[in-house]
């Protein structure tokens, strides 16, 4: 993990105001990944660490319609987009979600970030059909923040552990290999936590678990849970020297919402992160002026599918 250095080239401290107005800009090298805020900020859960405070009542951003998604999919084709991601809110709260996925898989691979608590058999049947019919992958990323109800439910809500595990069991039974994403809410090393997750998942019929640990973003509801960013948590020009910008989501991705195109999924609550109404409007560089950019700079690739931790079944 890189370390920060909030000083100018002469080694003198730099004020916060200067940092924000003169933030390093990241060019969009290519639009490889297109995100859809398909569930808006509407979610059947109200997790205490949600960085955009999603809940059943939060309709600041609403569901994306199939027509809207298809419009952006069409525009994305000429830009050579490589893959598509869907988030929310809870994507499967959107009644058009399966139709949207079916159309998307005509354009490229799709990944859905879900809490796995809304998987009725009819939805799972449809997902299986859609996945089998496409040359492209349909990846499902399931959020679970503990290997027991005691660890998970205080963060994600009463009863959510059992409901999510039910969803995971159903996915595994149908041959899906969901990626379990785990927000890092514990202190200390990861090994014991990961081992407990692997044991839990195998006991529940998922023999080849894929796990990804996510850093916490100190935004939204998480601010009330553990505190927000410090006053100095910003990315400076010094920190960007010899830094591989391709690690940053904003170097290769944009986010479609019901209100236009945003720079990335993390800055949804930041009005200045809106870049325009079309993808063509959103191709310019963006300054790393938000505190959350600091987390992205630290960890890199936090939004992509690449698993950050897992144990394969061969060592069982």
């Amino acid at each position: 993990m890189p370390t920060s250095d909030r000083s100018n080239s002469c080694g003198n401290p730099v004020s916060l105001e200067v940092l924000q107005t003169n933030a390093p800009r990241v060019a969009l090298a290519a639009l490889d990944t297109l995100w859809f805020q398909v569930g808006g900020t509407i979610c059947n859960l109200r997790c205490h660490h949600c960085f955009i405070s999603c809940s059943p009542e939060n309709d600041k951003f609403r569901f994306l319609s199939l027509d809207t998604c298809v419009g952006y999919l069409e525009e994305s084709r000429a830009l050579g987009v490589k893959e598509y991601y869907f988030t929310g809110g809870e994507p499967f709260a959107n009644p058009e979600m399966c139709d949207i996925l079916e159309r998307t898989l005509e354009f490229g691979p799709a990944t859905v970030l879900t809490n796995a608590t809304l998987f009725r058999d009819a939805i799972l049947d449809r997902l299986q059909f859609i996945d089998n019919a496409s040359i492209y992958s349909l990846e499902l990323r399931v959020s679970l923040d503990g290997y027991s109800a005691e660890m998970n439910d205080p963060i994600r809500g009463e009863g959510t552990f059992d409901r999510a595990m039910d969803g995971v069991r159903k996915l595994a039974a149908r041959g899906f290999l969901p990626i379990l994403t785990i927000a890092r809410t514990w202190d200390g090393p990861d090994d014991d936590v990961l081992a407990a997750f692997v044991k839990l998942l195998r006991e529940n019929g998922y023999q080849r678990p894929r796990l990804k640990i996510l850093p916490l973003l100190k935004l939204g509801a998480e601010v009330n849970r553990s505190g927000g960013y410090g006053a100095g948590d910003f990315v400076t020009h010094t920190m960007m020297r010899e830094y591989d910008q391709s690690r940053l989501v904003c170097s290769a991705a944009r986010l479609v919402t019901d209100q236009g195109v945003w720079v990335c999924p993390i800055l949804l609550d930041s009005p200045d992160a809106k870049m325009g109404d079309s993808l063509a409007d959103a191709l310019r560089a963006y300054p790393l002026r938000h505190a959350a950019c600091y987390t992205c700079w630290q960890y890199g690739a936090i939004c992509s599918n690449v698993a950050s931790a897992a144990t394969a079944s061969t060592d069982a």
């Binding site: 290519a30 490889d32 994305s76 084709r77 000429a78 830009l79 050579g80 987009v81 490589k82 893959e83 354009f107 490229g108 691979p109 040359i135 492209y136 992958s137």
Partner: peptide, 16 residues
């Protein structure tokens, strides 16, 4: 570049 995670339009962009 895996078959299942690489869109056709992306490959066409690489060619261009």
């Amino acid at each position: 570049l895996w078959e299942s995670t690489t869109s056709t339009q992306f490959l066409e962009r690489l060619c261009r």
